[in-house]
Amino acid sequence: MRSVIFRTFAPFITALMVLFSIFVLLRGHNEPGGGFIGGLVGASALAIYGISAGVGPARRALKAHPMSIAAFGLLLAAVSGVLSLFTGQAFMTSQWAAVEVFGVTVDLSTPLFFDIGVYLVVVGAIGSIALALEERESD
């Protein structure tokens, strides 16, 4: 699997896939896509990088342990549900706020952060599984 061509192109493919995964995540609310799908694309990117460059470099490139990413995602999702409690509404009631950034109105909402949490969980957990299995292959 470690052909020269694969090893040469893998970093670019990975970069593109990560970018694409974030795109899929953000468009998810209005077009097909979302946290789960984006997360799977991201995890695949990790897996491809792991296969081509080795698990060690993949882990180093990630900085954090993939399970930490997943755990952070779970926390983010949970916290985005808790926010509504401060306004006296039930758990997970969605909150919306429009923020002006450089003259463009951006809709920020708790479901958005929830979806980002889902994304991080899937990237982290599935990526962690993939890397763990590859690790046994490469050593």
Binding site: N30, S109, D115
Partner: peptide, 11 residues
């Protein structure tokens, strides 16, 4: 405020 009904249901 979401047009993708499936995603709105999920999140």
């Amino acid at each position: 405020h979401g047009r993708n009904i499936v995603n709105v249901i999920i999140v």
